[in-house]
Design a binder for these strands. Sequence first.
RNA 1: GCGCGUUUAGCUCAGUGGCAGAGCAACCGCCCUACACGCGGUGGGUCGUAGGUUCGAAUCCUACAGCGCGCACCA
Length: 691
Amino acid sequence: MKEIAKAYDPKATEDRIYKLWEESGFFNPDKLPFQPAHGKLVKKFVTCIAPPNITGELHMGHALELTLQDIIVRLKRMQGYKTLWLPGTDHAGIAAQNVVEKQLAKEGLTRHDLGREKFLERMWQWKEKYGGIILEQLKKLGLSVDWTRLKFTMDLDYQQAVKAAFRHYWDKGWIYQGERVINWCPRCASSISDLEVNYVPEKGKLYFIKYGPFTLATARPETKLGDTALAVHPDDKRYHAYIGKELEIESVDNTLPADQPPQKKPIRILVVADEAVNPEFGTGIIKVTPAHDLTDFEISERHHLSLLKVIGEDGRMNENAGRRYQGLKTSQAREKIVTDLESLGLLEKTEEYEHNVGRCERCNSVIEPLPSKQWFLKMKELARLARQALDNGQVRINPARWEGPYREWLSKVRDWNVSRQLWWGHKIPIEGEEDVLDTWFSSALWPFAILGWPDQAELDYQDYYPTDFITSDRGILFLWQVRMIFSGLELTGQVPFKNIYIHATVLTKAGKRMSKSLGTGVDPIKLIEKYGTDALRFGLASQAAGLQDLRFGEDLMVMGKKFANKLWNISRYVLTKLGPDYDWRLENPNSEIVEKINQLAKQTAIKIEEYEFASAANAVYHFIWHEVADQYLEESKNKDDQGTKNTLAYLLLTSLKLLHPFMPFVTEEIYTNFLPDWSGKKLLIVENWPG
RNA sequence: GCGCGUUUAGCUCAGUGGCAGAGCAACCGCCCUACACGCGGUGGGUCGUAGGUUCGAAUCCUACAGCGCGCACCA
């Protein structure tokens, strides 16, 4: 028997043990010592690594998510399931491109200076470097993923999947090109998704402008130049007489040069009735600027109004704004037109006002809604499929409270703008088309694209699709999970996974969001260096209770570290007590505490499967520490009979198994390196789950 | 505006109808040959507020408040 150190040392252990697992091949389900002949279901797990962030480092949210997933994966493997967890990275279109563009900016360059080809080379270099760092960090977390199947969303075979999916939608007639109002980021020079716009409250002004007989309130007077109608609520009696009429009103003459004094100009404008107008707000009448407001655009579609684009994709007023305003930034144009209206007596008053301004999630620029020629995917049928999957129980969301938002999102979803004016991504597979697809279009194919789809004869696809489970942060339920569900249903005829677990959000001790830019981020790798991976994993799991967000403090790490050490010393004691000649080939001994730990094993498995991680972790902690160590071990000190020895051996072995999903390193280290060899001993990672 | 979550010991949180719990922190005593990353012990809570249901409420219902979040609006 080897000499066992007095304290557990994660640093001397973790990398060595991880290598042992990798060399064993057991992360690969096809190489497991058991194959599914023994009648159990083939069980699969598939996940994607969330897109790398700016620095390419994992954050605490990843650490929690991946730990919980690995707990389930390891449990399932020990239960004898053929278990696959396939690692990979996402090319993260706009986010990744922005990072590299920022790098370039430091060198005084833009992507246009490099040209498309050179720029993409830079992107690939960046991907190799930071994608690689992320993958190393996954190993540090101890994740039991199958590295032989590593995927990237721009691998060649993945590109084939993207093309096949696009082709499928195209053949169905669901892809169309349209000049529609979308969220435009002038800095990224691309359309962005509704979900990537952050609305932040900002102080602004509300301008009350005279429109003939009415006074209208607007926060964006410069869009007045793009007005094509006025709108009131159909039930608003105040304005019944005007509905359907075309009014002649005074406006500002935008054809004059900027340096001349402003003059009035008569314009004609139609009044329409539309439900979208809130009669309570302001004067109950709105100006309709279809080109630069999403709501207005929808009103214009209902009433077949024309669309006048006055703001260009560079965020400046264009030729339609008239030569008086052309070329000005929207903020400058706003000042100018307010001054003009004021001197013409068309501005009634100005009020201070707090409203929400849409900003680009990636670069914080103010979003300009504007009409743009983009590719769209019709969502009606896809949304129906996704809703149906939840209704008929094909897919379950846990905690169930997320079902409401899921349904709500689907009921309101607009057609999906799938084109992006970026360089980094999947090119839209249409002749002569320069744009790329929204990152989420390819991410939506992940569970089946990684298994060989569209080639349905592919063995992995046949063996491992559909998958069973995915876990995720709440933030990407709509961006990702919903889209995987409808893509899976439409393209493969099956839900891509049966269960979604939405885990808690990791907050700072003060209850704030963890964010690198706010300086409230915590680096899990640093915690691992300080406390060990097992401590981090156990600390997180012991607080992962589902509904409640997790306020993170290092005391959790302390608890985990102490517990790993406690287990280590329980092992030292038991091994010393049993001595080198003890015969480990034994059946379950009969005793009360053996009954109890077997029960605990059953309960623990059930709790993990029901995502009761904290409850599972704490029950195991309490039992091992207080019942096994404080009571049984203490009592055993005065005993020397065979029954006690057998019980001690069984308790140790079972404790290692129970804790292995939570604390894989210390348990495997004790099992493989300190337990004597006996027939039937293998790696703990593929030991059978007790009970 | 609509909705969701949350409020329990100094801190972070379990506990979902039957005597208030854990970890950390605090205090007292212990290096007892597995572990001082430990052992034994102590103190500490009107379970957010008000009402209701019940033999019995931290737990179920209603209202209110604080904190957090989602969706919508954002003219």
